[in-house]
Structures are given as C-alpha cells and as structure tokens.
C-alpha cells in the first residue's frame, strides 16, 4: 500500500484523530463498554492494548518477509495471543489486585479488532519501526476515547476519579453509569462530537 503516509507525525494524527480506531473506524467497541466504569481499570486495560498492538505490529512487520500468505491470519493471531498472555502473566505476578479487577477482560484483548486491524492494514505492508509507532498511536487513540468515557462513568456512577472521592456524599450515584448501556450513550455522544468537529475542520480547510 503506497497510499499510506508513513511519516511519524502523519501516523500520529491519523491514529489519534482523523482515523481514530474508536470513533472513526468503530473498532474495539466491546471493551469500550466493558472496562470503562473505573478509570484505573481503563488505564491498565488500554496500556495493555497499546502494548499488545505495538509489539504485535512490530513482530508481524519483522516476520512478513518469511510469512506464507495463506497462513498469514493464523500467524497474526498467534503473535497477538502471545503478547496478550504475556500481559496477563505480568499483571498476575506484579499487579494481582488489578488483575483480579479486570478478570476475563485481559484475555479478551485478543479479540480487540484494533490489533488485528493494524496488523493487517499497516504492519503487513510497512517497515518494522513505523509499524511499531503505528501500533502505539492506535493504542493511544483507543486510550484517549476510553479514558474520556471512563471519566464520565466513574464520576457520575461512583462520585470518584481514580478511586478518590470527588463529588460530595450528598450526590446520588447514577446506577446507569455503572452499567454497560451508559457506555453506548457516551460513545454515541463522543462519535457525534468527534465527527462534527471533523466536519467543521474539513469545511474551514
């Protein structure tokens, strides 16, 4: 693919904004619903996804010269699964509390469409270093949107941010914010806000 701009700045802008995995490509939605009710969990989860995306893109790019086309997808899945299990093991060994909170969602990073999407769309046809950078920035684009959702959900659902009490005790937590449907509403609002901002940008440019 020669139409992809591989300059670092262009990749950054593309993955964080113009082609954001969540609100432009609408990928990785399942985890956006599942892990965003507490900021700490969201932060760890998105760092995990960023790590896995970056390293699997790097590995796919390194191996692509040797990879037969017909087993391409299987090998990509193997590589992604490898990094996901590494993340799971590291969390269990060094951050047992967080590992307990995230429960099955760490294993489910493997089903995050962003990772395979980047491996297929970018790493498969680009050099290792830009692929690694592409993975990191895609992860950051995902992190940005999820953290934004989590700020609203934790603040309104628990009255806290990162576990610290922010709103007074008299505040009645909104139960809906704790449940997955609220993430749908917030995600919808964010997609809407993001797209309108982008349209305005396009109109003035």
């Amino acid at each position: 693919m020669s139409d992809v701009d591989t300059r670092p700045g262009a990749i950054l802008k593309n993955n964080l904004w113009t082609n954001n995995p969540i609100f432009m490509q609408v990928l990785g939605i399942c985890s956006a619903l599942a892990v965003t009710n507490l900021l700490t969990n969201t932060a760890i989860m998105t760092i995990g996804v960023t790590f896995v995306t970056a390293f699997s893109s790097l590995t796919v790019s390194l191996l692509k010269r040797f990879m037969p086309r017909k087993v391409r997808m299987i090998v990509q899945t193997l590589i992604i699964a490898f990094y996901v299990i590494i993340v799971d093991i590291v969390l269990k060994a060094y951050l047992p509390e967080i590992s307990k909170n995230l429960g099955p969602y760490v294993g489910l990073i493997i089903t995050n469409c962003i990772i395979m999407g980047r491996a297929e769309a970018f790493a498969q046809s680009n050099a290792p270093i830009p692929s690694f950078w592409d993975g990191i920035t895609s992860g950051l684009g995902y992190m940005g949107v999820l953290m934004l959702i989590a700020v609203f959900r934790e603040l309104l659902g628990f009255g806290t941010l990162f576990g610290f009490q922010i709103l007074p005790d008299s505040f009645v937590p909104w139960t809906i914010m704790v449940m997955p449907p609220s993430a749908f509403f917030l995600l919808g609002i964010i997609v809407w806000a993001g797209k309108s901002a982008m349209n305005r940008e396009g109109a003035t440019a």
Binding site: F66, M67, P68, R69, K70, V71, I74, V75
Partner: peptide, 12 residues
C-alpha cells in the same frame, strides 16, 4: 517458494 506446502508447514 514461500507458498509451497512444505515451507508453510515448517514456518508455522
């Protein structure tokens, strides 16, 4: 030949 069956099996 990268696409040969033998190579694929060994690679995987």
């Amino acid at each position: 030949n990268k696409e040969a069956t033998g190579y694929t099996i060994v690679f995987v």
